[in-house]
Amino acid sequence: MAAPSGGAPSGRTGRPPLTEERRAEIRLEIARAAVRLFVTQGVTATTGEQIGQAVGVSARTVWRYFPNKESCVRPLFSVGITVVAACLRQWHPGQPLEALFERELASEESLLTGPDRAATAALVRLTRTEPALRAVWLQTYDEAEPAFARALAERAGLPADDLRPAIQAAMFNAALRAAVEHHAWRATADGSTGPAEVQGELTAALRSALAVVREGLG
């Protein structure tokens, strides 16, 4: 059927679709809001409506990005995976593992240690008592391992499914998780530790973990 004479042209109307970058920003905003609410009032007492309200979106929007409230925190857990994999690809023979990550560890804006380091530490502490959050935390590391294995295989010129980089990735992944958890378990939860001190402690823990695992990955 022809469009009415003088009518508006047919086609999609309304706001243009969000870019992938903007979607990632919204996911991170939701994650930060969820953490703040989880820490201040507990996971059980927090609702999707409250998380959305803290970000300025509807609960429906929250559920469009995440299947449940616990999974809202995933972006804070997984934000550094791409950075770590890229670093591993650039690892030169004979280069100390700690030196490989030195720039990332030293930067205040690093995806590994800032600017959400305090929120992440608080979140990791919650995984001790919140099984659903613990599941998200462990699943994130489980999903990171193949990315690290691919990077290590590429670095060594080995097939992506070779066993050696898979084992190396498992060792490296476990070291990172142990370091972050060690830092989180020991960090003060009352806010008395300043941001610079928090970053210094996390950086030291990561450096120690990388040094310990270096020989197995050399």
Rank of each mutant, 00 (worst) to 15 (best):
G218Q: 09
A156S: 05
V84C: 04
F101S: 04
E201G: 04
P75C: 14
K69L: 11
V73P: 00
L163K: 05
H92M: 13
A184W: 14
I81A: 09
D161L: 12
E143H: 15
D162S: 13
E29D: 14
Q168A: 15
V57T: 05
E197C: 07
P75V: 12
Q168R: 11
R128S: 06
E201C: 07
S208T: 12
L202M: 15
F148T: 06
P159D: 03
P4I: 07
H183I: 04
V83S: 02
Y65R: 02
R117A: 13
T203C: 13
I30M: 10
V73D: 00
L88S: 01
R134G: 05
V136C: 10
A132P: 07
L202C: 14
L97W: 08
S78C: 06
A54D: 05
T13V: 10
R117G: 06
Q53D: 09
S71C: 00
A196I: 06
E25W: 11
A204T: 12
G194L: 09
Q41Y: 03
A156P: 01
G94T: 07
G114P: 11
R32I: 11
L133S: 04
Q95A: 13
P93D: 02
V198D: 01
E109L: 07
Q95T: 15
A24S: 12
R125M: 12
H183K: 02
E102T: 08
W185C: 00
T19S: 15
D142P: 06
F38I: 04
L152Q: 00
T40M: 01
E21T: 03
H92S: 12
T193V: 15
G56P: 06
Y141D: 07
A86V: 08
V84W: 02
S208A: 11
E70W: 04
S5R: 10
T19I: 09
E104L: 11
A187L: 13
A184H: 06
V43Y: 12
S78K: 01
P165A: 14
L158A: 15
R207P: 07
G11T: 01
T188M: 08
A86M: 01
A153K: 03
P195M: 02
I167K: 05
T40Y: 00
L97K: 03
Q95D: 09
P115T: 04
A147C: 10
T46F: 03
Q50M: 13
V79I: 09
A24T: 10
L88P: 00
G48C: 11
